[in-house]
Design a protein around this nucleic acid. Structure first.
Lengths: 216, 216
DNA sequence: TTTTGGTTGTTAATTTTTTCACGTTGTGCA
DNA sequence: TGCACAACGTGAAAAAATTAACAACCAAAA
Protein backbone atom coordinates (compact mmCIF):
# COMPACT_ATOMS: atom_id res chain seq x y z
CA UNK A 1 0.00 0.00 0.00
CA UNK A 2 1.53 3.26 -1.05
CA UNK A 3 -0.44 5.54 1.16
CA UNK A 4 -0.86 4.38 4.71
CA UNK A 5 -4.36 5.41 5.53
CA UNK A 6 -4.74 5.51 9.24
CA UNK A 7 -7.56 3.55 10.74
CA UNK A 8 -10.79 5.43 11.15
CA UNK A 9 -12.86 4.66 14.18
CA UNK A 10 -16.22 2.98 14.07
CA UNK A 11 -17.85 5.99 15.62
CA UNK A 12 -16.49 8.27 12.95
CA UNK A 13 -17.68 5.96 10.20
CA UNK A 14 -21.16 5.99 11.70
CA UNK A 15 -21.23 9.74 11.76
CA UNK A 16 -19.85 10.06 8.25
CA UNK A 17 -22.66 7.92 6.95
CA UNK A 18 -25.16 10.18 8.67
CA UNK A 19 -23.47 13.35 7.48
CA UNK A 20 -23.65 12.07 3.96
CA UNK A 21 -27.34 11.35 4.04
CA UNK A 22 -27.99 14.80 5.37
CA UNK A 23 -25.70 16.34 2.78
CA UNK A 24 -27.57 14.62 -0.02
CA UNK A 25 -30.76 15.88 1.48
CA UNK A 26 -29.73 19.50 1.57
CA UNK A 27 -28.07 19.18 -1.81
CA UNK A 28 -31.44 18.16 -3.21
CA UNK A 29 -32.81 21.27 -1.61
CA UNK A 30 -30.28 23.35 -3.44
CA UNK A 31 -27.83 24.12 -0.66
CA UNK A 32 -24.24 24.09 -1.82
CA UNK A 33 -22.41 24.90 1.39
CA UNK A 34 -22.68 23.73 4.95
CA UNK A 35 -21.16 24.61 8.30
CA UNK A 36 -19.75 22.19 10.81
CA UNK A 37 -22.31 23.20 13.39
CA UNK A 38 -25.11 22.27 11.02
CA UNK A 39 -23.69 18.81 10.57
CA UNK A 40 -23.15 18.60 14.30
CA UNK A 41 -26.85 18.91 14.91
CA UNK A 42 -27.77 15.87 12.85
CA UNK A 43 -25.52 13.62 14.88
CA UNK A 44 -26.19 15.38 18.18
CA UNK A 45 -22.54 16.24 18.40
CA UNK A 46 -20.31 19.26 18.46
CA UNK A 47 -18.90 21.32 15.65
CA UNK A 48 -15.38 20.44 16.74
CA UNK A 49 -16.15 16.78 16.40
CA UNK A 50 -17.49 17.27 12.92
CA UNK A 51 -14.41 19.17 11.86
CA UNK A 52 -12.26 16.43 13.28
CA UNK A 53 -14.22 13.72 11.49
CA UNK A 54 -13.94 15.57 8.22
CA UNK A 55 -10.26 16.15 8.79
CA UNK A 56 -9.78 12.40 8.98
CA UNK A 57 -11.43 12.03 5.61
CA UNK A 58 -9.18 14.73 4.24
CA UNK A 59 -11.93 17.19 3.47
CA UNK A 60 -11.17 20.81 3.75
CA UNK A 61 -13.60 23.57 4.16
CA UNK A 62 -13.22 27.22 3.88
CA UNK A 63 -13.22 29.72 6.65
CA UNK A 64 -16.49 31.53 6.95
CA UNK A 65 -18.02 29.75 3.97
CA UNK A 66 -17.96 26.32 5.53
CA UNK A 67 -17.71 23.14 3.49
CA UNK A 68 -18.78 22.51 -0.04
CA UNK A 69 -21.65 20.07 0.03
CA UNK A 70 -20.81 18.36 -3.22
CA UNK A 71 -17.15 17.82 -2.37
CA UNK A 72 -18.06 16.40 0.98
CA UNK A 73 -20.45 13.91 -0.56
CA UNK A 74 -17.80 12.81 -3.00
CA UNK A 75 -15.03 12.58 -0.44
CA UNK A 76 -17.12 10.70 2.09
CA UNK A 77 -18.16 8.40 -0.74
CA UNK A 78 -14.54 7.79 -1.67
CA UNK A 79 -13.96 6.55 1.81
CA UNK A 80 -17.16 4.64 2.48
CA UNK A 81 -18.05 3.19 -0.87
CA UNK A 82 -16.55 0.44 -2.93
CA UNK A 83 -15.71 1.23 -6.49
CA UNK A 84 -18.68 -0.78 -7.67
CA UNK A 85 -22.09 -1.01 -6.07
CA UNK A 86 -22.01 -3.63 -3.36
CA UNK A 87 -24.38 -6.50 -3.95
CA UNK A 88 -26.27 -7.54 -0.87
CA UNK A 89 -28.57 -10.47 -0.19
CA UNK A 90 -31.42 -10.70 2.23
CA UNK A 91 -31.72 -14.02 3.96
CA UNK A 92 -35.03 -14.76 5.63
CA UNK A 93 -38.17 -13.40 4.02
CA UNK A 94 -40.38 -13.15 7.08
CA UNK A 95 -42.02 -9.99 8.34
CA UNK A 96 -38.78 -8.40 9.22
CA UNK A 97 -37.06 -9.44 6.02
CA UNK A 98 -39.81 -7.99 3.89
CA UNK A 99 -39.74 -4.81 5.93
CA UNK A 100 -36.02 -4.49 5.36
CA UNK A 101 -36.50 -5.03 1.64
CA UNK A 102 -39.17 -2.38 1.62
CA UNK A 103 -37.06 -0.03 3.66
CA UNK A 104 -34.23 -0.12 1.17
CA UNK A 105 -36.42 -0.16 -1.91
CA UNK A 106 -36.11 2.72 -4.27
CA UNK A 107 -33.18 4.19 -2.40
CA UNK A 108 -30.21 5.13 -4.47
CA UNK A 109 -27.26 3.94 -2.48
CA UNK A 110 -23.84 2.45 -2.89
CA UNK A 111 -25.32 -0.95 -2.17
CA UNK A 112 -28.13 -2.91 -3.70
CA UNK A 113 -30.15 -5.80 -2.39
CA UNK A 114 -30.13 -8.06 -5.40
CA UNK A 115 -31.63 -11.28 -4.08
CA UNK A 116 -33.62 -12.77 -1.24
CA UNK A 117 -33.54 -16.26 0.22
CA UNK A 118 -35.86 -18.33 2.31
CA UNK A 119 -36.15 -21.96 3.26
CA UNK A 120 -39.92 -21.95 2.75
CA UNK A 121 -40.59 -23.22 -0.78
CA UNK A 122 -43.83 -21.23 -0.94
CA UNK A 123 -41.87 -18.02 -0.89
CA UNK A 124 -39.32 -19.06 -3.47
CA UNK A 125 -39.61 -18.17 -7.09
CA UNK A 126 -41.69 -15.14 -6.31
CA UNK A 127 -40.67 -11.54 -6.64
CA UNK A 128 -40.82 -9.71 -3.33
CA UNK A 129 -40.40 -5.96 -3.27
CA UNK A 130 -38.78 -6.22 -6.66
CA UNK A 131 -36.30 -8.89 -5.74
CA UNK A 132 -36.42 -12.53 -6.72
CA UNK A 133 -36.66 -14.92 -3.82
CA UNK A 134 -34.57 -18.06 -4.08
CA UNK A 135 -34.49 -21.19 -2.01
CA UNK A 136 -31.71 -21.47 0.53
CA UNK A 137 -30.39 -24.46 -1.40
CA UNK A 138 -29.46 -22.17 -4.27
CA UNK A 139 -27.65 -19.73 -2.05
CA UNK A 140 -24.10 -20.64 -2.89
CA UNK A 141 -24.78 -20.60 -6.61
CA UNK A 142 -26.62 -17.29 -6.64
CA UNK A 143 -24.02 -15.71 -4.39
CA UNK A 144 -21.24 -16.62 -6.73
CA UNK A 145 -23.10 -15.70 -9.89
CA UNK A 146 -24.01 -12.27 -8.50
CA UNK A 147 -20.82 -11.63 -6.60
CA UNK A 148 -22.70 -11.15 -3.36
CA UNK A 149 -20.43 -10.67 -0.40
CA UNK A 150 -22.72 -9.09 2.14
CA UNK A 151 -25.83 -10.59 3.69
CA UNK A 152 -28.62 -9.28 5.85
CA UNK A 153 -29.69 -12.04 8.18
CA UNK A 154 -33.34 -11.83 9.18
CA UNK A 155 -34.21 -15.40 10.09
CA UNK A 156 -35.68 -16.60 13.40
CA UNK A 157 -33.15 -16.69 16.17
CA UNK A 158 -33.18 -20.48 16.36
CA UNK A 159 -31.91 -20.73 12.80
CA UNK A 160 -29.51 -17.83 12.82
CA UNK A 161 -26.40 -19.74 13.76
CA UNK A 162 -26.98 -22.45 11.18
CA UNK A 163 -27.77 -20.03 8.39
CA UNK A 164 -24.75 -17.91 9.27
CA UNK A 165 -22.61 -20.98 8.83
CA UNK A 166 -24.10 -21.50 5.38
CA UNK A 167 -23.38 -17.90 4.51
CA UNK A 168 -19.78 -18.18 5.57
CA UNK A 169 -19.42 -21.29 3.47
CA UNK A 170 -20.86 -19.40 0.54
CA UNK A 171 -18.01 -16.93 0.93
CA UNK A 172 -19.83 -13.99 2.45
CA UNK A 173 -17.57 -11.30 3.88
CA UNK A 174 -20.02 -9.45 6.09
CA UNK A 175 -23.30 -10.13 7.84
CA UNK A 176 -25.73 -7.63 9.24
CA UNK A 177 -27.51 -9.77 11.78
CA UNK A 178 -31.00 -8.97 13.03
CA UNK A 179 -31.32 -12.11 15.11
CA UNK A 180 -30.88 -11.42 18.80
CA UNK A 181 -27.95 -13.72 19.29
CA UNK A 182 -24.20 -13.76 19.05
CA UNK A 183 -22.99 -15.52 15.96
CA UNK A 184 -19.79 -17.46 16.21
CA UNK A 185 -18.16 -17.99 12.88
CA UNK A 186 -14.85 -19.61 12.22
CA UNK A 187 -13.57 -17.39 9.44
CA UNK A 188 -12.91 -13.72 9.81
CA UNK A 189 -16.22 -12.61 8.48
CA UNK A 190 -17.30 -9.25 9.78
CA UNK A 191 -20.49 -9.60 11.77
CA UNK A 192 -22.53 -6.71 12.99
CA UNK A 193 -25.54 -7.51 15.11
CA UNK A 194 -28.37 -5.04 15.16
CA UNK A 195 -30.14 -5.86 18.37
CA UNK A 196 -33.56 -4.26 18.48
CA UNK A 197 -34.40 -5.52 21.93
CA UNK A 198 -31.25 -4.02 23.31
CA UNK A 199 -31.89 -0.75 21.55
CA UNK A 200 -35.35 -0.52 23.02
CA UNK A 201 -34.17 -1.43 26.49
CA UNK A 202 -31.48 1.18 26.22
CA UNK A 203 -33.99 3.78 25.10
CA UNK A 204 -36.23 3.02 28.04
CA UNK A 205 -33.34 3.06 30.47
CA UNK A 206 -32.04 6.44 29.43
CA UNK A 207 -35.46 8.01 29.26
CA UNK A 208 -35.87 7.04 32.89
CA UNK A 209 -32.45 8.34 33.78
CA UNK A 210 -33.33 11.58 32.05
CA UNK A 211 -36.35 11.81 34.28
CA UNK A 212 -34.36 11.09 37.41
CA UNK A 213 -31.90 13.80 36.58
CA UNK A 214 -34.70 16.32 36.34
CA UNK A 215 -36.57 15.19 39.42
CA UNK A 216 -33.65 14.19 41.61
CA UNK B 1 -31.60 10.29 46.77
CA UNK B 2 -29.81 8.45 49.53
CA UNK B 3 -27.34 6.54 47.49
CA UNK B 4 -25.63 8.47 44.73
CA UNK B 5 -25.52 5.97 41.94
CA UNK B 6 -22.80 6.95 39.56
CA UNK B 7 -23.71 7.27 35.96
CA UNK B 8 -23.33 4.15 33.90
CA UNK B 9 -22.11 4.54 30.35
CA UNK B 10 -24.21 3.85 27.32
CA UNK B 11 -21.84 1.17 26.21
CA UNK B 12 -22.12 -0.64 29.49
CA UNK B 13 -25.91 -0.49 29.38
CA UNK B 14 -25.86 -2.01 25.92
CA UNK B 15 -23.71 -4.86 27.06
CA UNK B 16 -25.73 -5.46 30.19
CA UNK B 17 -28.84 -5.89 28.08
CA UNK B 18 -27.04 -8.45 25.97
CA UNK B 19 -25.59 -10.27 28.96
CA UNK B 20 -29.03 -10.56 30.39
CA UNK B 21 -30.55 -12.10 27.33
CA UNK B 22 -27.76 -14.64 27.19
CA UNK B 23 -28.13 -15.34 30.90
CA UNK B 24 -31.83 -16.03 30.48
CA UNK B 25 -30.98 -18.32 27.62
CA UNK B 26 -28.50 -20.42 29.54
CA UNK B 27 -30.71 -20.37 32.59
CA UNK B 28 -33.45 -21.97 30.50
CA UNK B 29 -30.87 -24.57 29.56
CA UNK B 30 -30.27 -25.32 33.21
CA UNK B 31 -26.94 -23.57 33.73
CA UNK B 32 -26.70 -21.89 37.11
CA UNK B 33 -23.24 -20.38 36.95
CA UNK B 34 -21.28 -18.47 34.36
CA UNK B 35 -17.74 -17.15 33.94
CA UNK B 36 -16.83 -13.69 32.80
CA UNK B 37 -15.10 -15.04 29.73
CA UNK B 38 -18.30 -16.73 28.64
CA UNK B 39 -20.18 -13.47 28.84
CA UNK B 40 -17.31 -11.76 27.09
CA UNK B 41 -17.83 -13.92 24.05
CA UNK B 42 -21.42 -12.83 23.49
CA UNK B 43 -20.45 -9.19 23.30
CA UNK B 44 -17.17 -9.82 21.52
CA UNK B 45 -15.36 -8.30 24.45
CA UNK B 46 -12.87 -9.27 27.09
CA UNK B 47 -13.37 -10.93 30.44
CA UNK B 48 -11.96 -7.88 32.20
CA UNK B 49 -14.56 -5.71 30.59
CA UNK B 50 -17.34 -8.00 31.70
CA UNK B 51 -16.10 -8.01 35.28
CA UNK B 52 -15.90 -4.26 35.19
CA UNK B 53 -19.43 -3.94 33.83
CA UNK B 54 -20.75 -6.26 36.49
CA UNK B 55 -18.85 -4.40 39.17
CA UNK B 56 -20.70 -1.25 38.20
CA UNK B 57 -23.98 -3.04 38.71
CA UNK B 58 -22.78 -4.28 42.07
CA UNK B 59 -22.83 -7.94 41.20
CA UNK B 60 -20.34 -10.13 42.87
CA UNK B 61 -19.21 -13.47 41.68
CA UNK B 62 -17.19 -16.09 43.35
CA UNK B 63 -13.63 -17.03 42.61
CA UNK B 64 -13.38 -20.14 40.57
CA UNK B 65 -17.12 -20.70 40.48
CA UNK B 66 -17.91 -17.58 38.51
CA UNK B 67 -21.17 -15.70 38.77
CA UNK B 68 -24.56 -17.02 39.74
CA UNK B 69 -26.80 -16.77 36.72
CA UNK B 70 -29.98 -16.08 38.64
CA UNK B 71 -28.50 -13.31 40.76
CA UNK B 72 -27.05 -11.64 37.71
CA UNK B 73 -30.39 -11.63 35.95
CA UNK B 74 -32.04 -10.10 38.97
CA UNK B 75 -29.35 -7.51 39.56
CA UNK B 76 -29.19 -6.43 35.95
CA UNK B 77 -32.96 -6.23 35.99
CA UNK B 78 -32.86 -4.01 39.06
CA UNK B 79 -30.75 -1.60 37.13
CA UNK B 80 -32.35 -1.76 33.69
CA UNK B 81 -36.00 -2.28 34.45
CA UNK B 82 -38.63 -0.02 35.84
CA UNK B 83 -40.62 -1.31 38.76
CA UNK B 84 -43.59 -1.89 36.50
CA UNK B 85 -43.61 -3.13 32.95
CA UNK B 86 -43.02 -0.21 30.63
CA UNK B 87 -45.86 0.41 28.22
CA UNK B 88 -44.71 1.12 24.72
CA UNK B 89 -46.61 2.25 21.64
CA UNK B 90 -45.82 1.58 18.03
CA UNK B 91 -46.49 4.48 15.72
CA UNK B 92 -46.71 3.67 12.04
CA UNK B 93 -48.14 0.33 11.02
CA UNK B 94 -46.40 -0.12 7.71
CA UNK B 95 -44.15 -3.02 6.78
CA UNK B 96 -41.54 -2.07 9.29
CA UNK B 97 -44.02 -1.35 12.04
CA UNK B 98 -45.67 -4.72 11.63
CA UNK B 99 -42.30 -6.39 11.58
CA UNK B 100 -41.36 -4.69 14.81
CA UNK B 101 -44.63 -5.78 16.38
CA UNK B 102 -43.99 -9.31 15.25
CA UNK B 103 -40.43 -9.19 16.45
CA UNK B 104 -41.47 -8.35 19.98
CA UNK B 105 -44.52 -10.59 20.03
CA UNK B 106 -44.56 -13.34 22.56
CA UNK B 107 -41.37 -12.16 24.17
CA UNK B 108 -41.45 -11.87 27.91
CA UNK B 109 -39.69 -8.61 28.65
CA UNK B 110 -39.78 -5.69 30.96
CA UNK B 111 -41.64 -3.72 28.33
CA UNK B 112 -44.80 -4.36 26.41
CA UNK B 113 -46.11 -2.89 23.20
CA UNK B 114 -49.67 -2.17 24.18
CA UNK B 115 -50.99 -0.18 21.25
CA UNK B 116 -50.33 0.73 17.65
CA UNK B 117 -51.19 3.88 15.75
CA UNK B 118 -51.53 4.80 12.13
CA UNK B 119 -52.98 7.65 10.15
CA UNK B 120 -54.55 5.33 7.61
CA UNK B 121 -58.17 4.72 8.66
CA UNK B 122 -58.17 1.30 6.97
CA UNK B 123 -55.68 0.05 9.49
CA UNK B 124 -57.42 1.45 12.53
CA UNK B 125 -59.74 -0.57 14.67
CA UNK B 126 -58.06 -3.77 13.63
CA UNK B 127 -55.94 -6.00 15.78
CA UNK B 128 -52.44 -6.39 14.40
CA UNK B 129 -50.12 -8.94 15.92
CA UNK B 130 -52.30 -8.94 18.98
CA UNK B 131 -52.36 -5.19 19.44
CA UNK B 132 -55.21 -2.85 18.72
CA UNK B 133 -54.48 -0.24 16.11
CA UNK B 134 -55.78 3.24 16.80
CA UNK B 135 -55.98 6.30 14.65
CA UNK B 136 -53.37 8.95 15.23
CA UNK B 137 -56.10 11.30 16.35
CA UNK B 138 -56.66 9.17 19.43
CA UNK B 139 -53.02 9.13 20.35
CA UNK B 140 -53.05 11.55 23.21
CA UNK B 141 -56.05 9.91 24.81
CA UNK B 142 -54.76 6.35 24.52
CA UNK B 143 -51.32 7.40 25.73
CA UNK B 144 -52.75 8.89 28.87
CA UNK B 145 -55.19 6.09 29.54
CA UNK B 146 -52.47 3.46 29.18
CA UNK B 147 -49.67 5.42 30.73
CA UNK B 148 -47.53 5.06 27.64
CA UNK B 149 -44.31 6.98 27.86
CA UNK B 150 -42.20 5.31 25.19
CA UNK B 151 -42.88 5.16 21.47
CA UNK B 152 -41.39 3.30 18.56
CA UNK B 153 -41.53 5.52 15.54
CA UNK B 154 -41.82 3.61 12.27
CA UNK B 155 -43.43 6.08 9.92
CA UNK B 156 -42.08 7.23 6.54
CA UNK B 157 -39.24 9.65 6.87
CA UNK B 158 -41.28 12.54 5.49
CA UNK B 159 -43.71 12.29 8.38
CA UNK B 160 -41.27 11.51 11.14
CA UNK B 161 -40.67 15.03 12.33
CA UNK B 162 -44.34 15.90 12.45
CA UNK B 163 -45.33 12.71 14.24
CA UNK B 164 -42.49 13.12 16.71
CA UNK B 165 -43.89 16.51 17.59
CA UNK B 166 -47.27 14.92 18.24
CA UNK B 167 -45.64 12.35 20.45
CA UNK B 168 -43.86 14.96 22.48
CA UNK B 169 -47.11 16.83 22.93
CA UNK B 170 -48.71 13.62 24.12
CA UNK B 171 -46.11 13.50 26.85
CA UNK B 172 -43.85 10.76 25.60
CA UNK B 173 -40.51 10.50 27.37
CA UNK B 174 -38.57 8.42 24.88
CA UNK B 175 -38.67 7.64 21.19
CA UNK B 176 -36.96 4.82 19.38
CA UNK B 177 -36.83 6.25 15.89
CA UNK B 178 -36.52 4.07 12.80
CA UNK B 179 -36.84 6.92 10.35
CA UNK B 180 -33.51 7.87 8.83
CA UNK B 181 -33.53 11.42 10.00
CA UNK B 182 -32.55 13.51 12.96
CA UNK B 183 -35.51 14.53 15.06
CA UNK B 184 -35.40 17.91 16.69
CA UNK B 185 -37.72 18.15 19.64
CA UNK B 186 -38.09 21.06 21.96
CA UNK B 187 -38.49 19.19 25.22
CA UNK B 188 -35.91 16.96 26.73
CA UNK B 189 -37.34 13.78 25.35
CA UNK B 190 -34.79 11.04 24.92
CA UNK B 191 -34.49 10.14 21.28
CA UNK B 192 -32.57 7.19 19.98
CA UNK B 193 -32.39 6.76 16.24
CA UNK B 194 -31.84 3.31 14.87
CA UNK B 195 -30.44 3.96 11.46
CA UNK B 196 -30.52 0.84 9.32
CA UNK B 197 -28.88 2.44 6.32
CA UNK B 198 -25.99 3.58 8.43
CA UNK B 199 -25.66 0.16 10.01
CA UNK B 200 -25.52 -1.51 6.65
CA UNK B 201 -23.03 0.99 5.28
CA UNK B 202 -20.89 0.48 8.32
CA UNK B 203 -21.06 -3.27 7.91
CA UNK B 204 -19.98 -3.03 4.30
CA UNK B 205 -17.19 -0.61 5.12
CA UNK B 206 -15.65 -2.75 7.80
CA UNK B 207 -15.95 -5.93 5.82
CA UNK B 208 -13.89 -4.26 3.16
CA UNK B 209 -11.39 -2.97 5.66
CA UNK B 210 -11.15 -6.48 7.04
CA UNK B 211 -10.26 -7.64 3.57
CA UNK B 212 -7.67 -4.95 3.06
CA UNK B 213 -5.96 -5.87 6.29
CA UNK B 214 -5.60 -9.44 5.12
CA UNK B 215 -4.51 -8.66 1.61
CA UNK B 216 -2.47 -5.55 2.27
C1' DT C 1 -2.43 -30.62 54.19
C1' DT C 2 -0.32 -28.40 50.50
C1' DT C 3 -0.09 -27.31 45.91
C1' DT C 4 -1.91 -26.08 41.54
C1' DG C 5 -4.86 -23.85 38.36
C1' DG C 6 -8.16 -20.81 37.31
C1' DT C 7 -11.39 -16.93 38.56
C1' DT C 8 -12.93 -12.68 40.79
C1' DG C 9 -12.42 -7.65 42.38
C1' DT C 10 -10.08 -3.71 41.77
C1' DT C 11 -6.57 -0.40 40.95
C1' DA C 12 -3.40 1.33 37.66
C1' DA C 13 -2.01 2.00 32.99
C1' DT C 14 -3.14 2.56 28.42
C1' DT C 15 -5.65 3.68 24.59
C1' DT C 16 -9.28 5.95 22.36
C1' DT C 17 -12.45 9.57 21.86
C1' DT C 18 -14.05 14.00 22.66
C1' DT C 19 -13.58 18.68 23.84
C1' DC C 20 -11.05 22.91 24.30
C1' DA C 21 -8.44 26.71 22.71
C1' DC C 22 -6.54 29.50 19.64
C1' DG C 23 -3.90 30.88 15.48
C1' DT C 24 -5.27 31.30 10.67
C1' DT C 25 -8.15 32.52 7.03
C1' DG C 26 -11.82 34.16 4.15
C1' DT C 27 -15.87 37.51 3.84
C1' DG C 28 -18.30 41.58 4.08
C1' DC C 29 -18.70 46.17 5.32
C1' DA C 30 -17.32 50.84 6.34
C1' DT D 1 -7.79 49.29 2.66
C1' DG D 2 -8.56 47.92 7.32
C1' DC D 3 -11.48 46.01 10.76
C1' DA D 4 -14.77 42.89 12.78
C1' DC D 5 -16.69 38.61 12.59
C1' DA D 6 -17.27 33.87 12.16
C1' DA D 7 -15.63 29.60 10.68
C1' DC D 8 -11.91 26.27 9.87
C1' DG D 9 -7.65 23.30 11.21
C1' DT D 10 -5.24 21.34 14.60
C1' DG D 11 -2.27 20.51 18.65
C1' DA D 12 -3.05 20.03 23.46
C1' DA D 13 -5.91 18.85 27.27
C1' DA D 14 -9.47 16.31 29.22
C1' DA D 15 -12.53 12.68 29.62
C1' DA D 16 -14.05 8.16 28.76
C1' DA D 17 -13.43 3.48 27.75
C1' DT D 18 -10.69 -0.45 27.56
C1' DT D 19 -7.05 -3.41 28.88
C1' DA D 20 -3.52 -5.07 31.94
C1' DA D 21 -2.00 -6.68 36.22
C1' DC D 22 -2.16 -8.79 40.40
C1' DA D 23 -3.62 -9.92 45.18
C1' DA D 24 -7.14 -12.65 47.22
C1' DC D 25 -9.81 -16.54 46.87
C1' DC D 26 -11.81 -21.09 46.02
C1' DA D 27 -11.90 -25.87 44.58
C1' DA D 28 -9.93 -29.92 43.54
C1' DA D 29 -6.16 -32.96 43.26
C1' DA D 30 -1.95 -34.84 45.02
Amino acid sequence: MLKMKKKISERTIERLSIYRRYLKEIQAQGKSRVYSHELAKVVSGTAAQVRRDLMEVGCNGCSSKGYEVESLIIEIGDLLDCSEVENVALVGVGNLGRAVLGFFSGKKENFDIVAAFDSNPDKCGRIICGRRCYHMDDLQEVFQKNRISTAILAVPVEEAEKVAKTLVEAGVRAILNFAPTHLTVNNDVFIHTLDMTMELEKTIFFSRQNLNLKEG
